[in-house]
Design a protein around this nucleic acid. Structure first.
Length: 335
DNA sequence: GTTCTAACA
DNA sequence: TGTTAGGA
């Protein structure tokens, strides 16, 4: 356990850099030799030691190369030029189109690679509204204070111990409810420390769809924590209940009139699923560590429940039960 | 695991 | 332009 100082930030060996950036070690050497993409300083035995700046730079360059630029044309661009190039390739503007009519999760992004990735598929981002995407933390910080995002997404090539406190600071200053932290490389301890609470660590690469889901889920969780319980007001992915408790009870009764006991069993299954659904939703709030898992369980259960409800509806209709009439009764009982 | 050069596709 | 072989 050494005290991590600036020294640690300058110590990435070529293998680590290859893993973080996704550029093969051989290619890294080639790029350096032929185009002087970066000039890592040398350590023992003349092995290359890359800095964090090197890594962010390489990440940018990789983006451009992946998008069709010749390495020779981008190898010597400054950081600003690289960003500009990348921006041009996206068809510019992109980010700050207003949200849709539905409630969307307001997101702000800070990072090198991510802003571009996100804007590239902007159309797929129903449900989240990207307020802005920045490459510089300073700019991000200023804008975040003004925009008051729901969720901030911070991207780092590598997570350092000091990065963690920076994340918490940004979270506090922006007033966001959750921070999604995308990292290329980090020790287990650091990742663990980011689990739970208001931060969600995600290992890069994160595909845009996944990120979108995470954003919405993050917002959903934070809402759950605040307005204590909202019963069945689960957003989008959770199918609404087809039958309430009263209706189910009545259907169970009604089914005794018919020969087959299937409706009865179905009601039983649906009631149990409903209970577990509520239980898993509860867990979702209680333990932030397992929130994702419980959210999944909750969603899965709800979907099964919805399926079984449809089955019940069909069976009961086949048995000649008048659902509409029953509904009318149940509602008057309930309200 | 790393460096380097040269040749190859 | 990226990959591979060979030697260190």
């Amino acid at each position: 356990m050494t005290t991590e100082t600036e020294q640690d930030a300058l110590n990435f060996k070529i293998g680590a850099v290859a893993r973080i950036t996704g550029i093969p070690a051989d290619t890294l050497r080639m790029w350096e030799r032929r185009y002087t993409v970066v000039s890592p300083r040398r350590g023992q035995g003349s092995s290359r030691l890359y800095s964090r700046e090197d890594i962010t730079r390489l990440t940018l360059i990789k983006q451009l190369v992946d998008r069709g630029s010749a390495i020779s044309t981008v190898a010597n661009l400054s950081r600003e030029q690289l960003l500009e190039q990348l921006d041009l390739m996206q068809g510019g503007s992109g980010y700050e189109q207003a949200g849709r009519n539905d409630v969307s999760c307001r997101v702000m992004i800070c990072g090198d690679a991510l802003p571009l990735k996100m804007s590239g598929e902007a159309n797929d981002y129903a449900g989240i509204e990207i307020l802005g995407a920045y490459a510089s933390m300073a700019e991000f910080e200023m804008q975040a204070a003004a925009q008051q995002p729901d969720v901030i997404v911070l991207e780092y090539p590598a997570l350092m111990p000091e990065t963690v406190s920076e994340i918490r600071t940004q979270l506090r200053r922006s007033g966001a409810k959750k921070a999604i932290v995308i990292y290329g490389f980090a020790t287990r301890e650091i990742v663990r420390s980011l689990h739970g609470g208001n931060t969600i660590p995600l290992r890069a690469p994160v595909d845009p769809l996944q990120l979108r889901q995470q954003c919405r889920q993050a917002l959903f969780q934070s809402q759950q924590q605040h307005d204590s319980h909202d019963e069945d007001e689960f957003s989008d992915d959770i199918p609404v209940r087809l039958f309430n408790a009263d209706e189910l009870a009545q259907l169970a009764q009604a089914s005794t009139a018919v020969e087959c006991e299937c409706p009865h069993h179905l009601v039983d299954i649906i009631q149990r699923l409903g209970s577990f659904e509520a239980y898993s939703a509860e867990c979702e709030n209680r333990s932030p560590e397992d929130a994702a898992l419980h959210a999944y369980l909750h969603g899965a259960t709800a979907r099964v429940r919805a399926t079984m409800e449809k089955a019940l509806e069909r069976v009961v209709r086949a048995e000649g039960v008048d659902l509409e009439q029953l509904r009318g009764k149940a509602v008057t009982v309930k309200n």
